[in-house]
Design a binder for these strands. Structure first.
Lengths: 223, 223
DNA sequence: AAGTGGTCTAGACCACTAT
DNA sequence: TAGTGGTCTAGACCACTTT
């Protein structure tokens, strides 16, 4: 039943009504409803009463903070400014290839960027993306684009992230981090290694973030 | 509909069947099913086909790792050994009182403990618990008890944790941490501040953990 | 065999959105 | 007013567990 997802309709698109899907698959409306409810719980789809059901997209206010967990101490979450430091092509090292499920030596796009809150550099991200999917990704396009990178990935490269797995450690700022985040070497930072997945649980992004947590924290709800 | 939770039946207990609840509340079985499905999604209740629906408890294998996110690098999660360092009563400082939603100066139980994986001290926890709820909690009872602390809290004090909110930062090991975790002063540690809630979103535990992440990491699934 | 949750049906009525 | 999702009904059959 869920096999129809991811391919048939694009993010943001309206999918057929429950009644129509029920007819198409020869099941009752209740069964369609249950299937859609499950997809909605997984954030694959968004329901709007009176309007219809839409394929989830990263171009929505409610999606903005789904993958950004760093919030200011005692303040309201807001989106950081973005500065691209470097974009280049390289051959995937063994570890990167393993996590992205590609072959060692395959082309990958490497991106380094710094994100700032109210002008204060706070996040240093290194990203590795499979070159085969992200053809033609340049620093210019990344700089032009406003808002979360996942919006660009979705619109320009047809790759919608549906989930991610993170490993968090505490580390000391190295040379690079100290320079880009304007802190002393040795300052403790959150090291967040993320692998993001698109439809079919296919890994399509490896990201290693260094978060400065003197005025922000990583928020997590356990339930 | 969900108002019947938390009070009428104890953790681990079997609740009435869907059909009986449907009769009791004059609704259809489908409506009861939906309500129970929602409670099941919130981990308030566990469904077992052919047996019935049970109030969730921390005395289950599947609950063990719900609130323990630190896992060994490249290994299988397992439960750490527990060593109680200190248990004492004190008057709640303003900040603790605020987070626990009690009055400043009210009695709280303070616990300090170290958790080790395969003999390696890895987690230093400081806990603050409302004295009014955790009467008679002693180091002996904590040391006798095997398994997750939340199991003891549930059985001995009738307090079942249903969710928690964590704030994570990177810090340097201070004097106390370096001594108890057997690391040098200044080593980077994960600082995890947790507030746990019981039924009715009532805060009942404040916990500040320092995690050594040289051989473990905090795992988080974003979805 | 009896009782449980798991899935599904075919229909009803309501709340919301558009035209 | 018509179409959408949101909620509910009353019943069916299945898979699993216990006696």
């Amino acid at each position: 039943m869920q096999g129809l997802q991811s391919g048939e309709w694009k993010p943001g698109e309206l999918i057929p009504s429950e009644i129509e899907l029920a007819g198409r698959f020869k099941v009752s409306q209740g069964t369609v409803r249950k299937a859609i409810d499950e997809m909605s719980a997984e954030n694959l789809v968004v329901r709007r009463q009176g309007k219809g059901t839409f394929v989830a997209t990263h171009h929505e206010a409610r999606s903005q903070f789904r993958f950004l967990r760093l919030v200011p101490d005692g303040g309201v979450p807001h989106y950081p400014e973005n500065k691209i430091i470097e974009v280049k092509r390289l051959r995937a090292p063994a570890e990167v290839a393993r996590l992205l499920d590609i072959k060692s030596g395959d082309s990958v796009v490497f991106i380094r960027r710094v994100q700032s809150f109210s002008g204060v550099p706070t996040i240093l991200d290194d990203l590795w993306l499979p070159g085969a999917i992200f053809k033609g990704l340049t620093a210019e396009r990344l700089n032009e684009y406003k808002g979360p990178m996942y919006g660009l990935f979705e619109t320009e490269f047809g790759t919608h992230m549906i989930r991610a797995s993170e490993e968090i450690r505490a580390v000391c700022a190295d040379e690079v981090a100290s320079e880009l985040l304007h802190v002393e070497k040795g300052v403790p930072l959150l090291n967040v290694e993320r692998v993001s997945f698109t439809y079919g649980d296919k890994p399509v992004e490896l990201r290693r973030g260094l978060y400065l947590t003197s005025q922000h924290h990583y928020r997590n709800e356990l339930s």
